[in-house]
Design a protein around this nucleic acid. Structure first.
Lengths: 333, 333
DNA sequence: CCGCTTCGTCGAACCGCTTCGATGAAAGTA
DNA sequence: TACTTTCATCGAAGCGGTTCGACGAAGCGG
């Protein structure tokens, strides 16, 4: 920096001004400084700046250590939104293990992050998040937020869309293959369907539970209630696995059983049959989370940010009216 | 830090020694310092340390801005390996766009990273990587490396496994739906199959080309050579899409056409039919990349690291002998 | 019992940048 | 032209650690 100053014939403070866009520098001088910077290939030292300003401009991101489509989509959106806002994203991932989560958190805290966004909504994770500090926090895809703000796709609305679709088709015996109950998403989705069913006076068949993987969906096929005509899965992967499992069991989808997923991962459009599901905009959720955080950090009013993103139904070919059309007309009971 | 020193009744330099594990501190003193640190909840300031040591201990990671299983798996492995080695991973992602790549690179360089690992092997990306500097670089999944070291799954071997499997089944007319030709992976896989076919004296049908997505695989179904009895896809997603496309066209897999993918993404085990593919250990590739880099950085001998990871064949149900069994016995010609 | 080595601790300089108060030059006012 | 304002630039003091040379206190052999 001193070299730059010398080459430009000014003092290093002036160079600093130019770098930070602080006014009070004559245009000709600015130009000279910029030229010197270019010539020397000078890069300001981030660490020194952080030290001097006592502002790290770093935003921590805690993501799940999975390669799933949803979280990863949000992750990329968060990363870019953060950089666009002039902050540096510090990305960390951790499996559901509390120790690993704690470790990731410590790592982030060590980098003196100014805010934190968490993508992995294990209930267990939130437990670790009790960092009472004054660290702005946004959690993605969480029903309730014990601390910090939540930005989320309206999971309940999505689940209702699915259930309603099935009801409209004439299904009356609907069973769920929910995600793991220590995930908020799974709980909210499941409850929304149950509530709707109950409100319609329909039976709530005992839900099965998977772990989000296609494998667990496959396994669920054998445990299904044989009288159920439609299955609501906690996510697309499980739905895909379930369809495979049903197929192995000789039950055809959607002719004999309808299956719906949740998420609309890219593969779902090409499964056999293509999957009816709910599409959620993972990237948008990520962007809003960052907008919220940056707003708080910069004092910019971020009040305009709606923390709830609306999902929409994507009807493909894994759903059809139940076999015995007669049952459909016996609606309401 | 001064507070800690005062509480422990020593000077800040001694605290520094304790923190860095540099010897020359009496055990009792060490204990006292540790206690003070705990009591004060003291966290050393990363920026100050970086500034003073002139070592950022940061390793940049440039990943593709996609949510695909492979790259993301490698990414998580890299992240953890980096942290385990005592470095801080700085993760960045960029789409295939050269400007975005350049931007990500600049971002990383600004953080004064000590090394770089690149996961996105677009040919175009490597062009941007000409940072002649003395920045240790490892590139994942690249056939040739113009600069830096490459760690990669042996794509050619994997492709050969697939082709051999098809040949053993009796297929003689094999067509490819390759990935985009500006991806090294795609080129290497395609060439390996072509070469093997040629070596066997079999016809090399003109290859189709997709963009890695299931959508492009679906589209390819209509453009297939009708005489081909087996299709080698550049990755699993395209294979899945292709199967869907074939199904829509009324062609059954594997009864009429065999289809194989590459990658073994989790969904592939549950497609209908379950996909025959090549499994590659993405995480291992990531780990080795980091091992290589850290070895170079720390001066530790990392010579023991084999930059080539062996893939293996996973035979499921998307492949079968060609329809006319007769052709199979006419092997060799 | 004494001089010397070794160990544990301290003082101070420095890493590269920001920032505040001060100063000189240019511009505005009477 | 003399004087006040405003603008551009400079000097210097940190930010929170690391690190090197120095120094007092034990531990050692003779």
């Amino acid at each position: 920096m001193y070299d730059v100053a010398q080459l430009a014939g000014v003092s290093h403070q002036t160079v600093s001004r130019v770098l930070n866009g602080a006014g009070g520098v004559r245009p000709t001088t600015t130009e000279r400084v910029l030229e010197a910077i270019r010539e020397l290939g000078f890069r300001p030292n981030r660490a020194a700046r952080t030290l001097a300003t006592r502002r790290s401009r770093a935003i921590g991101v805690l993501a799940p250590a999975s390669a799933e489509f949803g979280p990863m989509s949000s992750l990329h959106a968060i990363e870019h939104a953060t950089r666009d806002a002039g902050y540096r994203p510090l990305i960390t991932s951790a499996p559901a293990d509390p120790v690993a989560i704690r470790e990731s958190l410590e790592f982030l805290l060590d980098q003196s992050i100014e805010a934190l966004v968490v993508i992995a909504p294990y209930a267990s994770m939130l437990g670790e998040l009790m960092l009472g500090d004054e660290l702005p926090l946004v959690v993605l895809n969480t029903g309730e937020t014990p601390t910090g703000t939540a930005v989320t796709v309206d999971q309940a609305a999505g689940a209702r869309l699915l259930a309603r679709h099935l009801l409209d088709l004439g299904h009356r015996r609907i069973q769920q293959v929910a995600g793991p109950m220590d995930f908020f998403d799974a709980v909210v989705r499941r409850r929304a369907v149950d509530d709707l069913l109950r409100a319609e006076g329909l039976p709530v068949l005992p839900a099965l539970s998977g772990d989000w993987t296609a494998d667990s969906g496959y396994a669920a096929a054998a445990a299904l209630d044989p009288t159920a005509t439609a299955i609501v899965c906690g996510n697309d992967q499980m739905a895909l696995g379930l369809i495979h499992g049903l197929s192995d069991l000789g039950r055809r989808v959607p002719a004999e059983v309808s299956v719906v997923g949740f998420d609309d991962i890219p593969e779902s459009a090409h499964s056999l049959p293509p999957l009816t599901t709910v599409h959620q905009d993972f990237a948008e959720v990520g962007r809003r989370a960052v907008a919220l955080l940056v707003g708080r950090l910069d004092g910019t009013a971020a009040e305009g940010v709606d923390p709830s993103v609306e999902p929409w139904l994507v009807v493909r070919h894994s759903t059809a009216p139940p076999r015995s059309e007669g049952a459909a007309s016996a609606a309401g009971m």
